[in-house]
């Protein structure tokens, strides 16, 4: 599961750039600080490579997975 803390997100887009599956995008909505936060478009296609979380300068992404499938 990829959880994006949309209030911590500053909409820099580095996660979008880093995602090999291109399943992240910046929202058209604003968060409280006025940024367009990142959103996960297609969770089923996520391969849990963690690239988005590693490139997030604001640690806005937490990733977890069902234990038996790890």
């Amino acid at each position: 599961m990829v959880e994006i803390d949309t209030e911590r997100c500053k909409g820099c887009g580095l996660c979008v750039e880093a995602c090999p599956r291109k399943i992240l995008a910046l929202s058209t909505e604003f968060n409280k600080a006025g940024h367009h936060p990142a959103v996960l478009l297609d969770p089923d296609r996520c391969i849990y490579c963690l690239a988005c979380a590693r490139l997030c300068p604001d640690l806005a992404i937490t990733i977890s997975k069902e234990a038996e499938t790890v």
Binding site: L59, I61, I63, S64, K65
Partner: peptide, 26 residues
Amino acid sequence: MAVLFSRPQSLTDTPFRYCPGCHHGL
């Protein structure tokens, strides 16, 4: 659920004050 990626213990919970895309956070 197994957490694969989360905030390290050695950081406080305070959101970074840096600009969007700044590498200080990394």
